[in-house]
Amino acid sequence: MATVELSKLSASPVGDHHPQLVSVVTGELRRLILEFELPPGTHLVETRLAERLGVSRNPVREAIRVLTAEGFVEITPRRGAFVAHLTVQDAENLFDVRMALEPLGARLAARNGPELGVAPLNDVVTQALTALTNGQLDRLPHLITEFHIGIMEMARNPYLMTIAIPTIKRAQWVHLPDVTERAPHTWTEHIQMARTIESGDEERAEATARAHVEAAQHAYRERGPHAKHAAAALKASSNPS
């Protein structure tokens, strides 16, 4: 996926509603939330965020709408937008939904695997292994999300994509603290998923995806209440002084 510089888009003459600008602003706000630079409960004031990102209020407003739909932001009547809190129950609810959607996505992707191939999935795996080798752990949550979205795109079912992709994106909140400890297991599981999808074996692809979600859920439950501390440690290790 190409990287677009926010500063270049901000100066673009096409206007504040340029979809690419909104997409970049949304991605940056999502990153700030995931990395706890905008902690849960933070009041999202459009003017301040626009000044911070060097854009007008319009793309910020549109980005907040997108992030609200994804569950990262909550709107409180007469008070405004705030970064959402991810409770233990929220995480469990996410796993329940993932357990239903991701095995289905893998099954449908396997149906198309022999025809489409899995080059995009393999490319994400390569990027992740490079990031692991170079200690770029902060890139991994995004790559996990990109991998799972790639599977949903291979499924070629627009109804599934509409439901699944916001869930997959919000699940980054759950992935982030596990990146250091679970990364080798995560990407081994992803490689297995890509292989089963490429083989066209629908049942095995579905089973592999289910096992992957179950392993992630087990890791989350083992970690318990220490998620925020682990996330903070990851951020510190990725940005040495």
Results as ranks from 00 to 15, higher is better:
102 E>T: 10
103 P>L: 03
104 L>D: 14
105 G>A: 14
106 A>N: 08
107 R>F: 11
108 L>I: 05
109 A>C: 04
109 A>W: 02
109 A>K: 02
113 G>Q: 01
113 G>F: 00
114 P>A: 01
114 P>N: 01
114 P>V: 02
115 E>V: 13
115 E>H: 08
116 L>Q: 08
117 G>V: 06
117 G>D: 11
118 V>I: 13
118 V>F: 05
118 V>Y: 01
119 A>G: 06
119 A>T: 11
120 P>C: 09
122 N>A: 10
122 N>I: 01
122 N>K: 07
123 D>V: 06
123 D>M: 09
125 V>G: 07
127 Q>Y: 04
128 A>C: 10
128 A>R: 06
129 L>G: 05
129 L>N: 12
130 T>D: 14
130 T>C: 10
131 A>M: 04
131 A>D: 02
132 L>Q: 11
132 L>K: 05
132 L>T: 00
135 G>N: 09
135 G>W: 08
135 G>A: 12
136 Q>I: 08
136 Q>S: 15
137 L>I: 10
139 R>V: 12
140 L>Q: 05
140 L>W: 00
143 L>Y: 01
144 I>D: 15
145 T>R: 09
147 F>E: 00
147 F>R: 02
148 H>Q: 09
148 H>V: 05
149 I>W: 00
149 I>K: 01
150 G>P: 07
150 G>Q: 00
150 G>R: 00
152 M>T: 11
154 M>G: 12
154 M>R: 10
157 N>Q: 11
158 P>M: 04
158 P>H: 07
159 Y>A: 15
161 M>I: 09
161 M>W: 06
161 M>T: 09
162 T>A: 15
162 T>D: 12
164 A>G: 07
165 I>T: 12
165 I>Q: 12
165 I>W: 00
166 P>F: 02
166 P>G: 05
170 R>V: 07
170 R>P: 02
171 A>W: 07
172 Q>S: 14
172 Q>G: 05
173 W>P: 00
173 W>A: 15
173 W>K: 10
175 H>V: 14
175 H>E: 15
176 L>E: 06
176 L>F: 06
179 V>Q: 01
179 V>P: 00
179 V>H: 00
182 R>D: 13
182 R>Y: 07
183 A>F: 03
183 A>P: 06
184 P>Y: 03
185 H>K: 14
186 T>Q: 10
188 T>K: 14
188 T>Q: 15
189 E>D: 15
190 H>K: 08
190 H>E: 14
191 I>F: 07
192 Q>W: 00
193 M>R: 05
194 A>M: 07
196 T>R: 11
196 T>N: 11
196 T>I: 03
201 D>E: 12
202 E>M: 12
202 E>W: 02
203 E>N: 13
203 E>D: 15
204 R>N: 04
204 R>F: 03
204 R>M: 12
205 A>D: 07
205 A>T: 02
205 A>L: 08
207 A>M: 09
207 A>P: 04
207 A>E: 13
208 T>V: 12
210 R>I: 04
211 A>L: 04
211 A>W: 00
212 H>R: 11
213 V>N: 04
214 E>Q: 12
215 A>G: 08
215 A>R: 10
216 A>G: 13
217 Q>G: 15
217 Q>S: 09
217 Q>L: 11
219 A>L: 06
220 Y>F: 14
220 Y>V: 09
221 R>F: 02
222 E>D: 14
222 E>W: 01
222 E>I: 11
222 E>M: 14
